[in-house]
Design a protein around this nucleic acid. Sequence first.
DNA 1: AGCCGCTATAAAATCGGTTGACGATGCGGC
DNA 2: GCCGCATCGTCAACCGATTTTATAGCGGCT
Lengths: 353, 353
Amino acid sequence: MARTGVVTIRDVARESGYSASTVSIVLNGAPLSRYIPGETKSRIETAAKRLGYRPNPLARSLRSQRSNIVGVMVFDIMDPFCTPMLRGLENALYRANYLSLLADAHNEAHRFESYLEMLLDRRVEGLVVIANWLVTDIKLLTDLTECHVPTIIAGRSFENGSLSTVSVDNESGASTALEHLYRLGHRDIAFLRGPKALASSGQRWKGIRTYAQKVGLALNLKRIAELPESLDPNSSFEAGVQLTMELLGQGGGFTALMAYDDMTALGALRALKKKGLRVPEDCSVVGFDDVAQASLSVPSLTTVRQPMEAMGNMSAGMVLEAIKGLDQKKEIPIVRKKVAAELVVRESTMELK
Amino acid sequence: MARTGVVTIRDVARESGYSASTVSIVLNGAPLSRYIPGETKSRIETAAKRLGYRPNPLARSLRSQRSNIVGVMVFDIMDPFCTPMLRGLENALYRANYLSLLADAHNEAHRFESYLEMLLDRRVEGLVVIANWLVTDIKLLTDLTECHVPTIIAGRSFENGSLSTVSVDNESGASTALEHLYRLGHRDIAFLRGPKALASSGQRWKGIRTYAQKVGLALNLKRIAELPESLDPNSSFEAGVQLTMELLGQGGGFTALMAYDDMTALGALRALKKKGLRVPEDCSVVGFDDVAQASLSVPSLTTVRQPMEAMGNMSAGMVLEAIKGLDQKKEIPIVRKKVAAELVVRESTMELK
DNA sequence: AGCCGCTATAAAATCGGTTGACGATGCGGC
DNA sequence: GCCGCATCGTCAACCGATTTTATAGCGGCT
């Protein structure tokens, strides 16, 4: 309890009448402690407890070259995608007795690099990068291979590259969303595609094409709009409003709209309302991600859920695993986890009448 | 660049032909470097650069007792209130070359304490606690006085207690919100009060009473509902739905509704819609906080904005200031900053016709 | 007696940097 | 010739642990 005046191992040594070495050996249960009689052990432990001794992690880290810290680099903490991820991550790290050094790159490459150096300087044992879909600068990430610290990229995938990743199965998720609309009877469906430059955008689109082909649904080019590239996660809301307006301007008439992500879908909700269309009666809307906002909107948003907290958890597990592996000089395999997305049906979609 | 094989100060010493002490003195511009000729300095600097030397912060911290890290304790990272705060905080810390150790207490007292110990063990130089309005366990916070680390509480205030705080001016914010409704012509206004146990709840209510009294507006008890206490930040959405339903059930007829916070207001939006009332045509709604969701809803929410990013920034500034003060053995004053809330008019309120 | 092996503990080296005390050299002044 | 002072550096201690190596006593075996 007493956090006053900092108790060192030498204080415990003096108090117990043994040397600092012995104290260390006993308190850590080091191999040598095998020879130390219980009597001595308990005397030392009592002394340590009495003084409220807590070993200084700095000193310990310096010696052992282990910091019990992982770096958590977030590309943009304002992205609603990040928060549940951080929750899952932090929770798993906490259980493993690791702390997280948080770095927010603000979507800026130089800031990313500068933080990266700081984190490596601090001897983080591992690194988790929460890369939202906005990140196009792949080089930044692939460079990570070179630093000799176990690294996990969460939130996006790479086909090539030698990095472990955790990401959602965008393709089948998008298929599922479209299937949902199709089963509700929708045939004339508008799409707000993600920016071409993004990997996830291509994957989701592929899922759409695959399902459309499977059921013989025609994708009408006039019903497809593409989001512009941008670095601001909230911009996709504005873009969603804008593009939906345009689609409606070109005659409208579609009975459902599938958006690249929830932010875009929320934008679409606004645009539809502005044009006097009711959701879902006049037009069903489906999003992707299931960010916190999705369940709060009116109407609440049907969407495809990325299990973000679980993904955070998983990332932590993987990085801890890699750290353990490194410790035992084992080969660290590159793992590319794909987690399944899950359809969440809410109020914004309904059967076509 | 070369992050291989870790270069120590001794390597630089060897390479430059000087001793480790001299290298340290030169590279840190220590007082003693006054006597060291430019020639020597540049030789050492060149050597350091050539080898890619980066001092080990662990070793440095151990010696100098300064970690260049502040602990950031969040009560609940899922609270939308936290994210912008973290952004502001992190940004200011980054500029001051500090890193943040992130801890998420999950609203659990024992987790808070356990993290606190970990952070103090790590010799964080300062502590910022982001306490959302849900925190009722004041003891946890007031206990912080005893640890000898500069601490700032962001997000709530204490009248008594010896802690520095940064919080929004709830009272005048609530007045402003009510004034907005009043000026729009609303006289029959419903209120969703916050839980009595919360300080901010009382403050906001006081602002409401004050303004009502000033303009001679009667507060009808049948128009007032109170949120239950709860630890889940999202529960206030559900409570908002629920209580609004009840108010509407008791005859309804009010022309505006003022909610404790945005989450509650968003809940109210849903309830009103469900009852077939249009916002703002049939009923204006105003929230408090301006969380990210507020601008995305349909209709977008008129609310009173807490400048959360600025508050984060300010907290960082204060904790850094306190750290500097401690360094110079100056007395550290207790500061209680109140920042002004700002009315943000969006679509959910309109003039009474 | 000499040596081995076991037990129980301590001394010393180490991690990588910082810092106060001191040494050496050269020059001006008394 | 000696003192004092300014320059330019180095030595060694130190931060607080961990870990390797050393020491010492003791019993048993040859």
